[in-house]
């Protein structure tokens, strides 16, 4: 049978098994059934590895990744939209706040200025009043001092005259003192 034929072929190529290759080992047909058998076993093994495990798994992973990327892109687009909206809202709020702050500052400034003007006016009035009172008192004091000088001068003059042994009437002394003071 076929096997026996191969046996015979193997026997003729015994040299190849024993040591070095004789001619081309590729053309040693005695080894063909062996190679073909193991090749078919190998191909079936690889085919089952691929169809049962590897290919479905890889295609699932690729599909899942494609889905994830699509979803992520959509989510990113949405988030970007939201970010743009948020930025717009923020800018609007900022502008409003700025206007508000300007108003508050202006109002505060006006109020402070009004208060200041009022206080200044009051202070001026007080100062004026106080100055008037002071001037009056100064005038009084000056008048009082002038009177006292006249009095002292009259008395001194009378005493001097008396000490010198003179006699003078009050009217002439007064007139003399007045004339001196004026001069």
């Amino acid at each position: 049978m076929a096997t026996e034929a191969h046996d015979a072929a193997a026997a003729t190529h015994g040299a190849a098994d024993a040591g070095h290759a004789v001619g081309m080992p590729q053309l040693d047909f005695s080894t063909w059934p062996n190679q073909i058998f193991w090749l078919l076993v190998t191909l079936v093994a690889i085919y089952f590895i691929l169809t049962r495990v590897a290919l479905p798994r890889i295609s699932a992973v690729l599909a899942e990744r494609r889905g994830t990327i699509t979803n992520d892109l959509a989510a990113a687009e949405e988030l970007k939209q939201k970010a743009t909206e948020a930025e717009a809202a923020y800018n609007e709020a900022l502008a409003t706040a700025r206007v508000e702050a300007g108003k508050i500052v202006a109002a505060a400034r006006a109020e402070i200025e009004a208060d200041l003007a009022k206080a200044t006016a009051k202070a001026d009035a007080d100062i004026d009043a106080k100055a008037a009172v002071s001037e009056q008192r100064i005038a009084e004091i000056r008048a009082g001092a002038l009177e006292s000088v006249t009095e002292v001068a009259k008395d001194t003059a009378k005493e001097l005259i008396a000490a010198l042994g003179g006699k003078a009437d009050a009217r002439s002394i007064t007139a003399a003192v007045s004339a001196r003071l004026k001069g």
Partner: peptide
């Protein structure tokens, strides 16, 4: 001997 089922370097 190399039969079809022999375990070889192949």
């Amino acid at each position: 001997h190399i039969a079809w089922y022999t375990v070889t370097n192949v």
